[in-house]
Write a protein that binds this DNA or RNA. Structure first.
Lengths: 121, 121
DNA sequence: CCGGATCCCTATTGATACTG
DNA sequence: CAGTATCAATAGGGATCCGG
């Protein structure tokens, strides 16, 4: 393998840093349903600030995972969609989100056990 | 589905926030090789600070993904290993790291194209 | 109005020094 | 060795302003 994400200076490590991000995971999974407007994504992902959504989309665009289409109407309409490269990461990312939703009960139980044990000391 | 990570208040969303983290991805993949001491993990992941490694391991322990074993020798020996729950997330996480290493060339090219276009503005 | 840039304040991260 | 404590740097979020 030419790239090794364990090395801090390796470009693949920096790429991993960028995609291992909560907003990236949510934006990519949201766009899996098809192209969406800025405001649609914003509504889809509860709790995202405009600033973070803009920033996340810009980074994804620069990395070639997302394409940005501007329709110069009034008011402007901006659509975002996954590129083929963006769709190629959909598998792993969807699995991550699915894992979180599927294993919540076990994690919640582990937390309770951990917290009870901490109190006891 | 009982949990929905798109909702900000949903526990699974908070769990997703915690696992969508660069250090989590690297620590989990590192521990895939078997139990390791604190210093071994630290050496394995170039660029991690002691503080972030401690914090990441504590969170993973609390969530039940990692088990911590203390051997009260002098000096103390502390080993970390993946729990069965931790191993269940190994698939998605490894794929994420593998994707980053595999698609670097395409991402690098996308960045160059993007940056050249920005300059031309 | 929509998409997003900017300012400002808080929260998280990181570097460094120190300890049982 | 495996952490803590402390402080400086940075990233995130809220509110506000703006150009089309």
């Amino acid at each position: 393998m030419a790239f090794d994400a364990y090395l801090a200076e390796c470009p693949s490590r920096k790429l991993l840093d960028r995609i291992s991000d909560k907003w990236v995971v949510l934006v990519i999974t949201a766009l899996a349903d098809g192209p969406q407007r800025f405001s649609e994504i914003s509504r889809h992902l509860a709790g995202v600030s405009q600033k973070m959504l803009t920033q996340t989309l810009r980074t994804l665009e620069r990395d070639g995972l997302v394409a940005r289409h501007v329709t110069p109407s009034v008011p402007v309409r901006v659509d975002y969609e996954l590129t083929p490269l963006g769709r190629s990461i959909l598998g792993p990312i969807r699995q991550l989100k699915a894992w979180a939703e599927a294993h919540m009960p076990e994690v919640a139980e582990a937390q309770e056990t951990y917290d009870r044990r901490q109190e006891a000391r």
